[in-house]
Amino acid sequence: MISAHVTTPKLIGSWIALLVLTFLSFGTSRLGLGEVELLIALSISVAKTLIVLFIFMHLVEQRFANRLIVILTFLFIALLVSLTVADPLTRKTFPPRPDPAAHPYP
């Protein structure tokens, strides 16, 4: 069943890669790029997650069923977030944000 094997050098390499990515993420956040920053930061987080999943969590050497669970998890989170966020971002008829001054709440 085992096709790839996680070895000590691979673990150390992943650890160093994770630290490098962390400082990369930190560095880009200091550049002041605005909205793009969030995208970059999240992409780096996804990359780090993949390293943790495949090397630290040994997903490379496990059966497809386990990978399927990971795929489904990511898929459903993406689905939940995207379809939920699409709502406030596309609202026209209702004010996109309630104004407390205009509608004082007791």
């Binding site: 459903f76 379809l83 699409a86 709502d87 971002l89 596309t90 609202r91 209702f94």
Partner: peptide
Amino acid sequence: GFFTWGHHMFVAGLSEFDAGVF
């Protein structure tokens, strides 16, 4: 079944776009 939850909220203030998708 995971893509359809918005049809409970058509008159709750859901955006037209989201309502259409759902």
